[in-house]
Design a protein around this nucleic acid. Structure first.
Lengths: 229, 229
DNA sequence: CGATCGATTGAGTAGCGTCAAATCGGGTGG
DNA sequence: CCACCCGATTTGACGCTACTCAATCGATCG
C-alpha cells in the first residue's frame, strides 16, 4: 500500500509533515480527534451520489474528482480536489455527485454529525464552513461561464491556468496533470479528441509544451489572453 | 411606479401579503429591523460584479437574474431568482456576477455587516446562511451537467421543468416565463434561434403549447424523459 | 516481444451558431 | 378606432465548430 502510494504523482504540499497533524485551519483543529485516516485507490469511489452525507473528507495526499454520470454514459466532472481541499460538504441529506479518487488518495474522514454539532457551538467553525461553500460556489459559477460560453480553445487555456493555480507546485512552469484526457474532457464539456487537438494546437503555437509529466506553460500571457477572464 | 409594477407578469406568491411582514424564515426575523425596501426597474442593475458585498437582498416581488458578461459581449446567466430567494450572499469581498432585474422588482435589502454580525452570535442564522449557499451550490452543480453534457433539446426540457418547479404557480400547467428568449439562451448556453427552434419542435410534437403568457406543459412525462435527470 | 491502455491524428458529419428575412404583438399617435 | 412602428420572436439558408468513428502511435507491463 505504501509503495503504491509512492508511485502517485507529486506527494505535493503535505508530504513533508506527519500526516494529519499539520497546519489545519484553526477551526478544524477541534474536529481532529474525531477524524480517522483512510486511503482510496486510484479510480475507486469515496462516496456515491444518493448516499447519505454521513461523512466529509479532507484530502491529505493525491487528487480527487466529483462526477455525475448520466444513464447513457455521458459524464460531467464537477471539480478536481487537491490536498487540504474538503470533500463532501456540498450537500445536506444525500450527495449529488460521486466522489472518486483520480490518484491513490489518503484522506482524513470526519463524521458530519460531529462537524455540524461543533459548528452549532462555534461561530468560527460555522463561518469557516460557509466560507468553504461560498468558495466552491464561486468555482462553480466560473465553470458555468466556461461551459456555457467559451470555445474549446478558451476552455483548455482556462483549465491549464486553473490547474496551475490550484496544484501550485512551482517547479518551473510545468503543470502536473494527474488526471487523464478523458477526465479533462468531461470537466470541460468536450470530447477527448478535441482536448488533444487543442493541446496540440497550443504546442504548435509554442504556447505550451506537452511533456509526459505534464504541460509546460511556456507563454502564460498568451494563455491568459486565450482564457478571456 | 405602482402601476408599472402591476404590468409585470404574475405578482406570484407574495402579492396577497403586506410586503415585508410575512412568513420570513425565523432566522431572518431578527434582521428585519435592519432591512429597507427598495425597487429596481426592469433590466436595471441591483449590483455589479467587482462591487464590495456590502448588501444582500431578499426578493419580495418580481424575477431577478445573475449575469456574467464577457468582454466581447458573450453572456452567461447563472440563475434566475424568485420571491423569497436571497441575492448577493454568494460571495465574500466582491461580487462575481452582476445582479439584474428581469422584471420590475421590489426587494428587501440588508447590510451584510449586520447579517454577518448576527450570524456570529446566532447558530440558527449561521446554519441557515450555509443552507442557502449549499442549495445554490446544488443548483449550480446541476447546471454544470446541463451545460457540459446535455443537448439543446434536453436543455430546453430541463429548463421548462425547472421553471415549473421554481415559479410554482399552479394555474393548470402553464409556466409563466418572465424572462425573454435571449435570457433563456444565455442561461442554457445556446443561441436564441436554437431556443426558438427547439420550443417549436416541442410544440409540433404536442409536448408543450407556446402561449403569449408562457409555456403550457402538456406532457410532463415526455419532458421528464427528454430532460434526462 | 506482444499485449494493452491512453494519447494522438485523420476523415467525415451533425448539431448548433450566424446571418438574414419574415412575422407577430403591443404600444403609440393621429 | 385604426394605421404604423418597433422590438421580440420565429423561420430559413448556410457555415463552422466540435463530435464520431477509425486508425496509428507511444509507453508501460507482464
Amino acid at each position: 500500500m505504501q509503495t503504491a502510494l509512492r508511485t502517485v504523482p507529486p506527494p505535493t504540499r503535505m508530504s513533508h509533515m506527519p500526516t494529519p497533524f499539520r497546519a489545519v485551519p484553526g477551526a478544524l483543529a477541534l474536529l481532529e480527534q474525531f477524524g480517522c485516516t483512510v486511503t482510496v485507490r486510484r479510480d475507486h469511489e469515496i462516496y456515491r451520489h444518493g448516499e447519505p452525507t454521513d461523512f466529509c473528507w479532507r484530502i491529505l495526499t493525491g487528487c480527487a474528482r466529483t462526477v455525475k454520470l448520466m444513464e447513457d454514459g455521458r459524464r460531467q466532472i464537477g471539480e478536481f480536489l487537491w490536498p487540504d481541499d474538503l470533500l463532501g460538504m456540498d450537500d445536506f441529506g444525500t450527495h449529488y455527485f460521486d466522489g472518486e479518487a483520480v490518484t491513490d488518495l489518503t484522506l482524513r474522514r470526519y463524521p458530519r454529525r460531529v462537524v455540524e454539532a461543533q459548528a452549532e457551538g462555534n461561530a468560527v467553525l460555522a463561518l469557516w464552513l460557509r466560507t468553504i461553500t461560498v468558495t466552491n460556489l464561486r468555482f462553480a459559477h466560473r465553470q458555468l461561464v466556461l461551459l456555457g460560453r467559451k470555445t474549446a480553445l478558451e476552455k483548455i487555456a482556462s483549465f491549464l491556468l486553473e490547474m496551475d493555480r490550484r496544484s501550485a507546485q512551482t517547479d518551473g512552469g510545468v503543470v502536473e496533470l494527474p488526471m487523464n484526457r478523458t477526465d479533462i474532457a468531461d470537466h470541460l464539456g468536450l470530447s477527448i479528441e478535441t482536448v488533444c487537438r487543442n493541446l496540440a494546437h497550443l504546442q504548435r503555437e509554442g504556447t505550451v509544451g506537452i511533456l509526459r509529466s505534464g504541460i509546460d506553460l511556456l507563454d502564460r500571457d498568451a494563455l491568459l489572453e486565450l482564457a478571456r477572464e
